[in-house]
């Protein structure tokens, strides 16, 4: 049901401010040895990690959703837990249970798989809504409350959930309120023909995951997260973020616009993205790149847009393409 993987800490130096890019680059290169030909997907996954958000990977089976999550967990030397969501999974299976010890005559808490740095929730939409919400509470509050006791989760804490598209059989699609808690949603997509050819060569013998050695520690990641907080967000960029999110609320193609939480997520993600680029400040391009992954999964298309087969992704792209960037006067 759960699979614990731990890696020993390697003796890496804690990265300085300037070292952030180096470390992030190492992680990215490591993940890219596993997920080939998808640099943008890897970059956004890394962005979400540094922005302390949670990632939703939505795609059809077999394109490497789980592989992405696992390689990310393995490249960073931290605790990784995997939860395979099934319809009979219970909340306690995630958060953990208190067990009575006869000899010591006391309850002892058995932490569940959520107590890890990276939690891989596989096929999250297969579990019942009750179980789903148990995980989502942990995601939001970064703590677990069992038997009246509150236990904080260790940082970094990132949930990478995968889900099959909602129209597949045997699924409970995540309600929009739950989707809102994920910072970004990405789809891996089919690899290119060349990438698929390479895959046959490299992956047929053994899993490339096995060769993946950790290139950073949890402390490195915490330092990077700290560094992300120092990235400057100019007033114009903040205004642009508000404008972008606001535009989703007024767009006639959308029934439900993005929440204020989405604005916060967008700016946080943009900070992390800028840090990954080695920039000390956010530029509108960061917001533009992140608008679709960060915003699209929170939106509901209006009936008209549905009739025209316009997806929220398309709508967000259109908004990005025509919304003026605030410019100084």
């Amino acid at each position: 049901m759960s699979l614990g993987t731990r890696h020993s800490t390697q003796g890496e130096d804690l990265p300085e401010d300037g070292g952030v890019i180096a470390v992030a680059d190492r992680i990215r290169r490591a993940v890219e040895t596993v997920i080939e030909g998808k640099p943008e997907v890897v970059r956004i996954a890394l962005t979400v990690l540094l922005a302390e958000g949670h990632l939703l990977i939505e795609d059809i089976p077999g394109v490497g959703k789980t592989m992405l999550a696992k390689s990310l967990g393995r490249a960073v030397d931290c605790s990784v837990q995997r939860i395979q969501f099934t319809p009979d999974l219970l909340p306690a299976d995630i958060t953990g249970v208190s067990v009575y010890h006869q000899d010591r005559r006391e309850f002892e808490f058995n932490p569940g798989p959520v107590f890890a740095n990276i939690v891989l929730g596989d096929e999250i939409n297969r579990a019942s809504p009750k179980t789903q919400s148990a995980l989502l509470e942990c995601m939001e509050e970064m703590q677990v409350s069992v038997d009246g006791q509150t236990r904080p989760l260790e940082r970094p804490f990132m949930v990478v959930a995968t889900q099959n598209p909602a129209d597949m059989e045997g699924t409970y699609p995540l309600p929009e309120a739950q989707r809102d808690r994920f910072m970004a949603r990405i789809s891996v997509g089919y690899p290119t023909a060349q990438a698929e050819l390479d895959m046959i060569d490299t992956h047929s013998a053994r899993s490339p995951l096995a060769d993946l050695a950790p290139v950073a520690t949890a402390a490195d990641v915490r330092a990077m997260v700290e560094h992300v907080h120092t990235v400057h967000v100019a007033p114009g960029v903040r205004r642009y973020a508000v404008d972008l999110v606001g535009a989703t609320r007024t767009s006639p193609a959308l029934r439900l616009g993005a929440s204020p939480r989405a604005t916060l997520h967008l700016v946080r993600a943009a900070r992390a993205y800028a840090a990954l680029e080695g920039r000390a400040y956010v530029v509108p391009d960061d917001l533009q790149t992140l608008a679709v992954p960060v915003l699209a999964h929170r939106l509901l298309p209006s009936p008209e847009a549905r009739m025209e087969r316009r997806t929220p992704e398309q709508v967000v792209s259109e908004i990005v393409a025509r919304l003026p960037i605030p410019s100084p006067r």
Partner: peptide, 13 residues
Amino acid sequence: AAARRAYRPDPAA
């Protein structure tokens, strides 16, 4: 036209 969307730059900036 551009003046309509102007914002005040950050004093620090």
